[in-house]
Amino acid sequence: MATPILAVNNIEVIYDHVILVLKGVSLTVEEGRIVALLGANGAGKSTTLKSISTLLKGERGDITKGNIEFKGERIDHLTPADLVKKGVCQVMEGRHCFAHLSIEENLLTGAYSRKVPGSQIRQDLEMVYGYFPRLKQRRTSLAAYTSGGEQQMCAIGRALMARPTMILLDEPSMGLAPQIVEEVFAIVKSLNEKEGVSFLLAEQNTMVALRYADYGYILENGRVVMNGPADDLATNEDVKEFYLGVASGERKSFRDTKFYKRRKRWLA
């Protein structure tokens, strides 16, 4: 097994000093992989990503236990700007493009932390336009007036302009039409293959995410309840039942099912 580029070690996260949201989450991402972080709304996916990108502090959240390592170095004490310099960039849930900046200006802000000549920046801009031809067409439009899909592309492209080795991508499929979701995921896959960017991808859309990911973690109530290679998860009966909508019978908690199945096996 290759050494992981990112390791989240048993972290506990508390908001506003009282609300315990993550109750000991561990996960690893190996270099060059796409890892999916799955789970229902409120499971703690975004909180996990924000813990890694250190954006948590701005929301009065604290990591009270455990730690996070990127390339073997502790990163939980860094500022977001320093982390971007080290090569980790988050694309936030809901896209968060700069509404009053044009698409091209949005992309350029992604390169803020880099100390490289302008010619290099132009070259990277063309690279981003190569992956997202739609953005090139809309380069002078204000981001606020572009479609949801274009905004998602803009947000990913903006992160790419920092030339990260790892992108934390939060719910890219949110609010997008199915074809656009496929388009976005296909681009993520090719960025992963051609630019070698590793992805940690939070998604509620389990089906699509597992199709593009190499490995997956399922989060429930702030705990990892299952993990494994994407193919295994996609064919797992329990995952199918609870997250792929192939339901049989009434809805139960995932943990209950495991227990229930285990007991059934035991009794049989």
Partner: peptide, 24 residues
């Protein structure tokens, strides 16, 4: 200018500005 652009970005969305590495 680059700083001016970053300034407008910060004005639009602090969180997103932080996320892309603009030192707020």
């Amino acid at each position: 200018t680059k700083v001016g652009r970053a300034l407008r970005a910060v004005a639009d969305d602090h969180q997103a500005a932080l996320a892309v590495g603009i030192p707020l």
